[in-house]
Simulated scan of single mutants.
Amino acid sequence: MGFEHHRVVITAAGRDFGRTLALRFAARGAEVHLSARTPEAAARVREEILAQGHDADRVHAYACDLADPVSVREFAAGVGARTDRVDVLLNNGSRYHHGADLLSASDEDVVATLASGATGTVLVTKAFLPLLLNSDKPDIVTMVSICGESGHHRSDAHDSFYAAKSAQAGFTEILSRRLREQGVRVISLYPPDFDNHDPLSPHWEGAPRTAKDPLTAQSLVDCVFFAVGQPRDCFIKSFHFEQV
């Protein structure tokens, strides 16, 4: 399926999986609005997409600090100045913090982890909801994590990351129920740690995979494309994955 008629917003697209999402949606023809914590990081990904031959009028870069309400509002206003609607919002941003010992993180690290993953997801969704409601095909896609599943304990992530992801899971659950009558689909992904190969590398296409291999970014992107590409009567609420 092509996405030539989709206007897509992606948070934390300056590197890793956010960058992958931006590159892949652009390759499918979407108009991409990508954000990163710094304008330099966002601009680098935009230039990377333009180097693939994409129209400059369909690739836009913004700075957005998910922990800063003013920055989130300015991001949404910047997008709103260029378009009257958003068809897909991809909540990808969330600070990761490693460490199985609660005492290993500073108070500042705890606040930053919760602010980016939990507060940031709520603020971004709230800021972009008016533009989403202007679309006839609105989808909100959130990259949660297996750490957001009740009872999961196999990650070495810090407790604050578990808390942030659990908050995201609760938010998307209630959002899915409350926005359905307005035609907004809320889709959540709960992956374990996965292999994020560069989507332009030879590993991206055609590499053989087995049940013993880690989940790949390609599989996650394919899940997003599949869910967003379904007819509007098909509400896929979540994707859950086995951990190797």
Score class of each variant (00 low, 15 high):
Ala67His: 03
Pro69Val: 10
Val70Ser: 13
Arg73His: 15
Glu74Ala: 12
Glu74Leu: 11
Ala76Tyr: 11
Ala76Arg: 08
Ala77Pro: 04
Ala77Ser: 13
Ala77Arg: 13
Gly78Phe: 06
Val79Ser: 09
Gly80Val: 01
Gly80Tyr: 01
Ala81Ile: 03
Ala81Phe: 02
Arg82Phe: 08
Arg82Met: 10
Thr83Val: 13
Thr83Gln: 05
Thr83Asp: 08
Asp84Trp: 10
Asp84Gln: 12
Arg85Asp: 04
Asp87Phe: 01
Leu89Ile: 01
Leu89Tyr: 00
Leu90Trp: 10
Asn91Arg: 01
Asn91Trp: 00
Asn91Ser: 02
Asn92Val: 02
Ser94Asn: 09
Arg95Ile: 10
Arg95Gly: 06
Arg95Gln: 13
His97Tyr: 11
Gly99Phe: 03
Gly99Ala: 03
Ala100Asp: 15
Asp101Ala: 13
Leu103Gln: 14
Leu103Met: 15
Ser104Asp: 14
Ser104Leu: 03
Ala105Cys: 05
Ser106Pro: 02
Ser106Thr: 14
Ser106Val: 08
Ser106Gln: 08
Asp107Ser: 15
Glu108His: 13
Glu108Trp: 06
Val110Phe: 12
Val110His: 05
Val111Ile: 14
Val111Met: 10
Ala112Glu: 13
Ala112Asp: 10
Leu114Asn: 06
Leu114Trp: 08
Ala115Phe: 05
Ser116Gly: 04
Ala118Gly: 09
Thr119Met: 15
Thr119His: 14
Gly120Arg: 01
Gly120Tyr: 00
Val122Asn: 05
Val122Lys: 13
Leu123Ser: 11
Thr125Leu: 03
Lys126Ser: 13
Ala127Asp: 07
Phe128Cys: 12
Leu129Ala: 06
Leu129Ser: 01
Pro130Ala: 09
Pro130Tyr: 10
Leu131Arg: 08
Asn134Tyr: 08
Asp136Lys: 12
Asp136Ile: 05
Asp136Leu: 09
Pro138Arg: 07
Asp139Arg: 09
Asp139Trp: 10
Ile140Ala: 02
Val141Phe: 04
Met143Cys: 06
Met143Ala: 14
Ser145Pro: 04
Ser145Ile: 03
Gly148Lys: 02
Ser150Asp: 15
Ser150Pro: 13
Gly151Phe: 01
His152Met: 14
Ser155Met: 09
Asp156Asn: 15
Asp156Thr: 12
Ala157Asp: 15
His158Asp: 04
Asp159Trp: 15
Ser160Glu: 08
Ser160Lys: 06
Ser160Leu: 08
Tyr162Asn: 01
Tyr162Gln: 01
Ala163Arg: 01
Ala164His: 07
Lys165Ile: 03
Lys165Met: 04
Ser166Phe: 14
Ser166Trp: 14
Ala167His: 07
Ala169Val: 11
Thr172Lys: 05
Glu173Ile: 00
Leu175Gly: 02
Leu175His: 01
Leu175Glu: 00
Leu175Asp: 00
Ser176Val: 02
